[in-house]
């Protein structure tokens, strides 16, 4: 391509593959793939430089539907595999696609280490609080009491909160969105992509077949203004139809409480102001859920740090500067050598 031949402007269609989509009708995954296909051309992605890496599960079919590079790997291991892709070629734009079972159960270990290393890629966690592909068993994000084929009397183990787990693991970018909320989902996808390091996007995804309405207590449009808090850096945490409710720290504690502006002398100045770089505050926000609280959506935490793979390759560059580019013959003759017969004498 020459400078006279400017790159063709890509559109959503350029990112749609020729493969027939095989998710169940009404699955939240459709909305997510559509959002990505719309966002990629807007953020300047190219087909050849984009790689989708997934594990196993309904969501992990994702790469087949993208007309980019893609690798559908094995259960839970996509973060490790994607780390290898970035170590081989840091220039590639990598998106990891995972789910609550794939990423937090069988792949929990890799999820933790990907986040703490801060490999420069985006990871989208499709959380539907259920195993879909294996036909409806409860997952590590299912609520206690979840009846499923493997828990006929209800599940008894406590669920993990993905955002809290991520923050505890040392993640440097944690965000959340609802599958069908195109505007907010597109916004966090864009932010995660801009972020240098591991950008986690947890998507609350509805599985109409095995866990319909798992998140309806905050996704229902009619009540959304009361059950959702859309975070904005530097802005007070306000929600509610009348924009009169907010969050503040309960005085003298490390707990968040819901207050109403204008009641008991509360003004906007009393409310918590969102600070994306405050990990402790992000942790408090990650645990909020109706009925007592709204769910915090958007970017909970963003604190840039050097990307892992760049630091790794930097060490290679430094080694070359320090020792010169490696030479195999010199390597084989490093240390003690001796000569038998002939007349050449090494070291």
């Amino acid at each position: 391509m020459t400078p006279l031949d400017p790159p063709k402007k890509l559109t959503r269609k350029d990112f749609v593959s020729d493969q027939e989509v095989r998710w169940c009708p009404g699955c939240g995954d459709y909305a997510i793939v559509a959002a990505i296909q719309r966002v990629l051309p807007k953020i300047g992605s190219t087909r050849e430089n984009t790689v989708f890496v997934s594990g196993i599960g309904c969501s992990s079919r994702f790469p087949y539907y993208m007309n980019t590079y893609g690798f559908h790997t094995i259960h839970g291991r996509a973060p490790a595999l994607a780390t290898g892709v970035k170590l081989a070629n840091p220039e590639l734009d990598v998106w990891v696609i995972t789910g609550d079972g794939d990423g937090l159960s069988i792949g929990g270990n890799h999820f933790l280490h990907l986040l703490r290393r801060n490999v420069n890629l985006q990871i989208i966690l499709f959380n539907n609080r259920i195993y879909g592909l294996t036909k409806g068993q409860y997952s590590p994000t299912s609520l206690v009491g979840k009846k499923s084929p493997s828990t006929p009397l209800g599940s008894i183990d406590s669920p993990v909160t993905p955002a809290a787990f991520a923050l505890g693991s040392g993640a440097r970018f944690v965000s959340r969105a609802i599958d069908v909320d195109v505007k907010n989902l597109s916004a966090v996808l864009t932010r995660a992509h801009e972020f240098k390091g591991t950008g986690l996007i947890e998507v609350f995804q509805n599985c109409p077949v095995f866990n319909d309405g798992a998140f309806s207590h905050f996704t229902e449009r009619a009540t959304a203004t009361e059950t959702q808090l859309h975070l904005e850096h530097g802005k007070p945490m306000i929600f509610g139809k009348e924009r009169d409710r907010g969050l503040r720290l309960r005085p003298g504690t490390l707990e968040i409480e819901v207050v109403t502006i204008g009641e008991n002398g509360i003004t906007e100045a009393d409310l918590l102001v969102h600070d994306e770089t405050n990990r402790a505050q992000a942790f408090l926000l990650s645990g909020l859920e109706p009925p007592l609280f709204p769910v915090a959506l958007g970017v909970l935490f963003a604190a840039p740090a050097p990307a892992f793979e760049e630091a790794v390759l930097d060490q290679n560059r430094q080694a070359v500067e320090l020792r010169g580019a490696g030479d195999i013959d010199a390597l084989l003759r490093k240390g003690h050598t001796w000569t038998v017969g002939g007349d050449s004498q090494d070291s």
Partner: peptide, 21 residues
């Protein structure tokens, strides 16, 4: 490039990712 992974599985998966790339 050497990568001390979190476990044996991650180690080989990273290698496979590198080969893919």
């Amino acid at each position: 490039v050497t990568f001390q992974a979190e476990d044996e599985i991650a180690a080989v998966c990273a290698a496979i990712g590198a080969s893919y790339a």
